[in-house]
Every structure is written in structure tokens, then in C-alpha cells.
Simulated assay, not measured.
Amino acid sequence: MEIISLSKVDKSRLEEAARLLLDGFTASWNDWTECVEEVEESLQNDRISRVAIHENGKVVGWIAGASNYRGNVWDLHPLVVHKDYQGQGIGKALVADFESCVREKGGVTIFLGTDDEDNGTTLFGQELYPDVLGRLQQIKNRNHHPFGFYEKAGFSIVGVLPDANGFGKPDIFMAKRVAKLTK
């Protein structure tokens, strides 16, 4: 497997990344044109957009992100791996590569949101107010929610936005420092 930057001139790989988005995020992305636009938007100068290429030449994973806070923080969005290639370390490799790209650009922290719209955590369907942080401290993973993957990659849960996707459907915020701490 090889990880490379996605390019505007490579329409075939751009479309393969859009297909990954369409197939991998069926609840969020169900329009082909929107998926293509999302991939094209990831190619702007203040962004990172990388794809994992299998030995057979097929795009099997895509990761992208945008710069925030004057380049100190990078928002990782999205990360998707073709369902037939999940569990083979491709997502982990894409995250490590993204971290390296962020460091090269002088970034300090990577931030992401991971929604729970389908009973993936113990926060789903719950009234989180008024003790939002107390409830967040008790979070448990059900049904292989992605926050478990990100924790294994060194990310920490840093917050939650209750009801972000409707009642009982929160967005869980995670972050990881990627720059070396200097004194």
C-alpha cells in the first residue's frame, strides 16, 4: 500500500475517493454530486487530502483535513476505508500519515468529531443535560463506534455536543497533540 496526495488532475482517484465517501457514510452522504464536491473541496491550499492506494491500484482509503486556529489545529474530516479493506491497518496508516503532514505544516493538534447517530455509544438516546461532562466520563463503546479506533490511535475525548444530530444523537469531540512539547 502507498499513501499519496490526492490531485485535481487525477479524476479517476478523485471519483474513487468520492465513492468511498458515498459507500462509507451512508447516513451522512447519499448524493453523488455532494460527495464529489466534498472531495474537490479537500484539494484547497489550506487542506490535506491523502489516499491509500492498494497494490492493485485501487483507492482503498481517504483522509482529509483543514487548517484552523492559524494553522495550530487541523480538523480531520473525513477518514474512510473501503469496507473490504477495513481491519488491515489502512486507517491507522492514514492517520499516522496525516499526523506527519500536519507536523510538516507546523500544526500542533488534530481535532475531529465522531457522531453517534446509531447507538454506537452509551451516550446515544440519552438526556445528557445538565451533567454533560459527568455523562461523558461514563462513555462506553457499543457496536464498534469509531471513537474506539481513535483512542487506540492516541486521541482523547475532549468534549461532546449533545443532540448535534437530533435528540440523543451527540457529536463526540476528540483531539491529539502531534507536535513535540517544547519548553
Rank of each mutant, 00 (worst) to 15 (best):
S67W: 02
D118M: 06
I90T: 01
L181D: 02
E99D: 04
V95Y: 03
T122Y: 01
G148W: 04
A64L: 00
G107D: 09
S7R: 12
I157E: 01
W29V: 15
D131P: 00
N141T: 08
I90G: 09
D10R: 07
C101L: 11
P146L: 10
I157H: 09
M1F: 06
F111E: 12
N119Y: 10
D23M: 09
D31E: 13
E40K: 15
K11P: 00
F25P: 08
G154R: 01
K152C: 03
L181Q: 03
H144S: 14
V132C: 10
K152W: 00
R135W: 06
I172V: 13
H77A: 14
H145T: 11
L79D: 09
L22E: 11
W62P: 05
H54D: 14
N72T: 09
V178S: 07
W62R: 05
F167Q: 09
Q88N: 13
L133V: 03
Y85S: 05
A66D: 10
L43C: 06
S49D: 03
Q137H: 13
V81I: 12
L181G: 00
D118F: 04
P78C: 08
A52Q: 06
F124M: 03
D23I: 02
V59M: 03
L123G: 02
K92T: 15
R177E: 10
E15W: 05
L14Q: 12
L79C: 07
R19A: 13
A96S: 15
R103G: 10
D118S: 10
T33D: 11
S67D: 01
A18E: 06
H77R: 06
E104S: 14
A17T: 03
R142G: 01
S28M: 10
E40G: 03
D97T: 09
H82G: 04
N141L: 12
E15L: 12
E127T: 12
T109V: 15
D171L: 14
G57N: 05
N45D: 13
E55Q: 09
L112D: 04
K180V: 13
H145N: 07
C35D: 00
F147V: 15
F147N: 01
L136C: 04
A18W: 08
E16K: 11
T182E: 15
G106Y: 09
E117V: 10
L6W: 06
L94M: 06
R19Q: 15
T109C: 06
L6K: 07
K92R: 15
R177S: 11
A175I: 00
Q138N: 10
D84H: 04
I110Q: 03
I110H: 05
E34D: 12
R70N: 12
